[in-house]
Amino acid sequence: MSTLTPEERAKKLSEGLDYVKDLPGFERGHPHYFKDPMIDHLLEIVLQLGAEMWIIRDRQMVTEHLLTTEGKVTPEMIEAFKPSPEFREKMKAERGTYTRRLYQSLYDGIGPGGEAAFVSGVLKVR
């Protein structure tokens, strides 16, 4: 066990690291990316709206599914609903179409991009 007090230990762990207090370019606040920050706000709102609308669509799909398979639906049933792998895939495909339709114009100038996944996009696993 360390024999130092917590403060002494923190000081020791911080030795030679004064530069951490002022990291160049490191963005801690809420940066904006357009010259007119209102464009940033609008894009944020548009994304939030897309998310909130998806919530309603998701609920509607689950509701229809439960009505079809169980003949009834309650809020508790919706909360407890565990989608099967097939249903999950169906939702995912629906969500992909929905997101593309809403936002495809954002990158109109540069095309649809590559394969849409973290692993292929960023890590490029062979």
């Binding site: 998806w54 909360e79 969500r95 992909g96 997101t99 649809p112 991009g113 849409a116 996944a117 292929s120």
Partner: peptide, 26 residues
């Protein structure tokens, strides 16, 4: 709750489509 999960599903999918897919282009 289901709504929070759906919200995050949307965000996750949007990251794949609007970010990772455009990573090389950007």
């Amino acid at each position: 709750n289901r709504a929070d999960e759906a919200y995050c599903d949307f965000v996750s999918g949007a990251r794949n489509l609007l970010m990772y897919a455009q990573f090389q282009n950007i």
